[in-house]
């Protein structure tokens, strides 16, 4: 018995040693929760003989807080949203990708090759992009849903049955679109009006919830829910009679990006990973899993056909413009922070 135990320990020690010796290097990813298929990670690990470690976060702000609280030097890559790329670059948290360091950089779709949040793609590559709007349960409401009034000035049958995302950026950007004012307004009258409008609108809201944004729509707890397009497509696929709205006032567009972090312990592998995700076939696998768009030329051919035609990804003619969430300066941001606190006080 003792011998069996001994040899088992020896064998597992050997295996562990072999495992460590086998992988040539490491790659530490800091990623959103449930946002990359495991098979894709395995594929990269096998192709490049790399051991992958992945930790997850649940919001852009949580990512920033964790990195600023001392996680720099732990991870090689992270996946911040558009405005957060700009903030992180401003904070000096990102490394610059040198000219010619990414052999697949040319694969980036022209539309996404020079975005305002990272001019010239000096720190990032596209990961997934989509929109944030809201869905309406068509069993409850049959009228026109392509207006932000549904969220902020809803008809009687929807009042009290609305879930908002518990996210300052998404809620305030949508509210600004509803009022037709800039996202980083410094006009006091506009800001006061925004504050008043939100206080009024809150009377109609049932809850603020991001994690369960899909679930509350599927279960019928609410009839209207602010939601991301891919998440919404999943809600519809799960059988809810819900429709994604593209308001005439506009809607929020976002793009998540893979960034190279400063002090990356495995910089080489991080670049290999970015090149890997710029292969149309690989990034299409992410799209098929997450149900969002990819920013890589030729990825469409490898995607599920229904992904291209799903209503959540195809704004109608009447849709307003899609806008990114903007980054305000400190003084302006503090006013928006106060408006948000006042909304949830």
């Amino acid at each position: 018995m003792k011998n069996i135990l001994k040899s088992t320990i020896a064998a597992s020690a050997l295996l562990a040693a072999a495992g460590a010796a086998q992988a040539e290097g490491k790659l530490a990813i800091y990623h959103w929760f449930e946002y990359i298929p495991q098979e894709l990670l395995d594929k990269f690990a096998a192709e490049h003989d790399v051991e992958i470690v992945m930790d997850t976060y649940d919001s852009n702000e949580a990512l920033l807080a964790s990195l600023k609280a001392g996680a720099m030097g732990t991870y090689d890559v992270a996946v911040p949203g558009d405005y957060m790329v700009k903030i992180m670059a401003g904070e000096g948290l990102l490394d610059t990708i040198g000219e010619g360091e990414l052999s697949n950089k040319g694969n980036i779709a022209p539309k996404w090759a020079d975005p305002a949040f990272d001019p010239g793609r000096r720190h990032s590559i596209p990961y997934q992009w989509g929109s944030t709007s809201f869905m309406v349960n068509r069993d409850v409401y049959q009228g026109d849903i392509n207006t932000t009034d549904i969220l902020f000035n809803p008809p009687a049958e929807l009042s009290g049955k609305i879930n908002m995302l518990d996210s300052q950026g998404e809620v305030l950007a949508m509210a600004s679109l509803h009022m037709g004012i800039p996202q980083c307004s410094t006009d006091r009258e506009q800001l006061k009006a925004l504050n008043d409008m939100l206080q009024e609108a809150k009377q109609h809201w049932a809850s603020f919830n991001s994690d369960t944004a899909k679930e509350v729509l599927v279960s019928g707890d609410v009839a209207v829910g602010q939601i991301y397009d891919g998440f919404g497509a999943k809600a519809r696929a799960e059988g809810a009679n819900v429709e994604y709205a593209f308001p005439t006032q506009g809607y929020v567009v976002w793009m998540d990006n893979v960034v190279l972090l400063k002090d990356a312990p495995n910089r080489e592998n991080a670049l290999k990973f970015m090149d890997f995700l710029l292969e149309p076939e690989n990034i299409a696998a992410v799209s098929n899993y997450a149900r969002y768009g990819a920013g890589v030329t030729g990825a469409g051919e490898h995607m599920d056909p229904e992904l291209a035609t799903q209503p959540e990804s195809n704004p109608p003619e009447t849709a307003g413009a899609g806008v990114f969430i903007e980054v305000c300066d400190q003084q302006t941001q503090e006013v928006y922070d106060r408006i948000w606190t006042a909304l949830k006080k």
Binding site: N163, D166, K202, W205, A206, S207, F208, N209, T212, T341, K344, K345
Partner: peptide, 9 residues
Amino acid sequence: DLLGGAKNF
């Protein structure tokens, strides 16, 4: 958050 709807801090 989960039962009260996070409407109030």
